[in-house]
Amino acid sequence: MIRAGIIGLGKMGLSHAAIVGSHPEADMVSVCDTSSLVLDAFRKFSKTNVYSDYKKMIDAEKLDCVVVATPTRFHYPIVKYALGKGIHTFCEKPFSLKPEEGQELVDLADRFHLVNQVGYHNHFIGTFRELKRLLKSKIIGDLIHFTGEAYGPVVTKEKGGTWRSNPEEGGGCLYDYASHVINLIQEILGKPVRAEGTKLKQFYSKDVEDSVYSILTLEDGLTGVLSVNWSDETYRKMSTSLVVLGKKGKIICDATELKIYLKEDNHAEKLGKGWTIRYITDYAIPVSFYLRGEEYSAQIDNFIKCVLSRKQTDVNTFRQGLYTDKVIELIIADSKK
């Protein structure tokens, strides 16, 4: 059994706590938050040790690993402290607000050979994994264009809010929503190296953008469109998709479906000419505990497995999270041009 702690008990932190708490190979020994309301609930209803100071928790609990799910601006000091104490660390996305700080954390994790993972959970959704595999096999030939999108109903009225409405703390549609799409593009299609024509639009929020539109160029020269809006109430919940166009076909992929159009039969993949629709039921990663989606459990399973075997993951490393932070910086810089 490994000893785990959770730092930050917002929506994601609570969800991680439940997933870690039910994991057969992990003992969720302690949680940490600054909200006395949440800590009192843990005191009253659970056997978990509670802390309001993460340093005290890390010093006292002899943890093997922590999950950091605080507002983004606290990631750096907390992750740095945990790594310094030799603790394997899972950190929520986005990874860091300042790439130089993110780089320091990457170097620290490397130096101490600690397992490090960032919470870009889309990589644990079967359809996106299959998309990556299909593109690697060149099924739609040379790529021509891509569109990465995410829409959802987070801010649909004009009113102030939490840290998510503060750009200094990592709020806004770019950090919160677009980071997921950028990370998917980066890991499935290739690293974006340039952003052009960026528009960060505000409709309801006062201090942060509610949508992000940008044209991205990848390392290999492929270009595509990023289109993200967290103020679209025609979506019941966050909906993320990638459309990839190649010389031999096209693939539309989201969390539930993979729609493949091929100009010719592909015998190796047993896919015929024209449209083929594949569903998540064929690709979902089996999990022993389910909360809000297989991907949330699957990413923690992966992290715990890596901690147990002392082997660094190749999915969602700090380094990959840091690259996404750098693309966010490119996009912000371009929007100010």
Binding site: L14, S15, S22, F42, F45, R292
Partner: peptide, 15 residues
């Protein structure tokens, strides 16, 4: 289920 499974995972069975 979101709430049931959250309470279940947090082992707050008294709820």
């Amino acid at each position: 289920n979101v709430l049931v499974d959250m309470i279940l995972g947090l082992k707050m069975y008294e709820v």
